[in-house]
């Protein structure tokens, strides 16, 4: 776990961190409230003797104790979607209201897109963008399986996202769940550590900055942008926020997160960041027995 060693200075309990990273990840499903209710989904799982527990912080997330998400009737009906627990954080932090226009800048394969669509009650509009046609195919399969009709999918680079097909207005909110080095998914996919290079970190950080800048530009004044990743690398997290705070009219907003976490870090490898990045939240795998995650909420001020 050489790559993870670089994060030891940031982690509150290094031994617990490594222990958690070595364990496999619990199987979690989100109830798709476009097609059913939480209560019906519970009854359907109980009828098939599928053991589950509801997460403490989100009543639509169930941990499956023995089963895989896809092998049951409620899944077949699009009532359930397999989604890692922390992956359900950013849409909750974005907290859209029904009828709003949302941009999901790095959308495929669509777990967060479909969660946003459900939080909107399948009203308003979610514009879901991705630059990879294969991944867009997976996104489309998920939106259709989950019965989402308020989504418009575009194939383009988030950094140069065009509002031309949607001439009505800027977005009320945007989510940038950025492509990243993904060390936070090590419990699901240990290979991420073998593929890790510092060159990739630097390259992807430039993409992340561009996507987040475009999201702030495309969102109306007073609107909200959420930035999230599944990496522990400050280069891809706090440094990206620091860059965009300088470059675009926005500020970091506080938000509640009913999961154990730590604050954003203000220094890394000799670089200092805007102290406001402490308003971001870091979730390590040992905190809540999940994957690792990073999430920040920005208010657009101009």
């Amino acid at each position: 776990m050489n790559v993870l060693e670089r994060y030891e200075p940031l982690v509150d309990d290094v031994e617990a961190f490594y222990d958690a990273c070595r364990r496999s990840l619990p199987s979690v499903v989100r109830v798709n409230t476009i097609k059913t209710t939480v209560e019906r989904a519970k009854r359907a799982l109980a009828a098939e003797d599928i053991a589950f527990e509801v997460t403490e912080w989100n009543p639509t997330l169930f941990r499956l104790l023995d089963d895989q998400p896809g092998a049951n009737w409620p899944y077949v009906h699009g009532w359930l979607h397999g989604q890692e627990e922390v992956s359900a954080v950013p849409a909750r932090v974005l907290d859209p209201d029904p009828g709003e226009r949302i941009w999901d800048a790095c959308a495929a394969p669509g777990s967060k897109t479909t969660q946003l669509a459900a939080l909107l009650g399948d009203t308003g509009l979610v514009v879901a963008t991705d630059n990879n046609l294969g991944r867009i195919s997976a996104l489309r399969s998920n939106t259709e399986r989950l019965g989402v009709t308020n989504v418009a999918v575009t194939a383009e680079d988030a950094r140069t996202h065009s509002l031309k097909p949607f001439p009505q207005a800027e977005y009320d909110r945007a989510l940038v769940d950025a492509p990243c080095s993904c060390e936070g998914t090590v419990r699901k996919n240990p290979d991420v550590l073998e593929d890790w290079t510092v060159e990739h970190v630097e390259g992807i950080a430039s993409v992340q900055k561009g996507a987040l800048r475009r999201a702030v530009q495309a969102t109306r004044e007073g609107g909200t942008v959420v930035y999230s990743t599944c990496t522990f690398a400050p280069e891809e997290n706090e440094a990206v926020l620091d860059h965009v705070l300088d470059a675009e009219p926005c500020r970091i907003e506080p938000f509640d997160l009913p999961l154990e976490h730590t604050s954003g870090v203000t220094a890394w490898h000799g670089k200092q960041f805007d102290p406001a990045v402490q308003g971001a939240k870091r979730i390590y795998p040992h905190h809540n027995d999940t994957g690792g995650f990073f999430c920040a909420r920005l208010a657009v001020t101009g």
Partner: peptide, 12 residues
Amino acid sequence: LETPVGIEALGM
């Protein structure tokens, strides 16, 4: 939306 729309998918 205004018609036409040149995108990958629109609803289902």
